[in-house]
Amino acid sequence: MSRFDVSLPWWAWVLMGLGLAAFVAMVAVSILRNRGMKRSLFASPYALWMILFTIVPLVIIVYYALTDSSGNFTWDNLRNFWDSNYIRRMSATSDAARARYAVRGMSNMDPLIYSLWMAFLCTVICLVLAYPTALFMADRKMKRASSLVILFVVPMWMNITLRTYAMRILLVDDGPLITFLRLVGFKDAQLMDTPAAVLIGMVYNFLPFMIFPIYTVLSKMDPALQEAASDLGANPGRSLIKVTMPLSIPGVVSGITMVFMPAVTTFTLNVMLGGSKRLMLGNLIEQTFTKQSNWNMGSAMSLVMMVLILISLTILRKADPNNEGGGL
């Protein structure tokens, strides 16, 4: 016996076995069909990885989301997401409990809405900040573009927790930002423990993910296009709106995806900068798994979030059908 012993439920082993069998079968079929190595075989290490760490966990999440603690099928976890009082109301035995849980509980829906709203704001702010920056960096007359790129990359070498701790020094009540705001007349200015601080933290952490896809698309753009536009009489503003912007849409779409997704699921920033004053969906899921050990409810929450992200990605894909931005 060692501490590497893992006891998983039997069906988890079955699932993993099936995954492995499917993989072996895939390889076998591809060899038999093509009589030898084929290029698609080069993808097999990734296929194995995907089956083990994408497909199997996904199946496990769906399984947990649709069962109760003793493993019986139930919709209750999902119903309880929509109405956090649902399970309590069903099991209420006293008048006090019936009265308290009579109306719809929002403690699961509220964090979801709040998270989506914060992620939306973060994405918009990032886009507004990133587009001009990317334009500036992609300008061929700019000799220092590469050093600018480095400036944006360097903070990303640091761990997110450390970065956020550094952020706190700027945001605390006797820090430079608040001192300045109070000097110019905002006597009650406060950033720490407010949604604004969480938003600042999110923008700070995710901005590079918006800048780089846009920068990549812009810097690859053929300068002849703008020259042609100006030859045909378009002033710089018009050529920006009519030529550069439409052509950079793939980069924008890719940037939005790369900012919005981590922004929806963020939770450390809420604890470290927001003082946990509002629950975000990430906090709720983390708590449900670790503190409450309720894997069923936690899986249901993750499932809802994954479906929402999938829907928004599908909508976004419509704007970049050929996947030119290299997005997900």
Binding site: S84, G105, S107, S276, K277, R278, N283, L284
Partner: peptide
């Protein structure tokens, strides 16, 4: 747990 979530979610 549910009641404490109510506290954390109150606003």
């Amino acid at each position: 747990n549910d009641l404490y979530n109510e506290v954390l979610n109150a606003h």
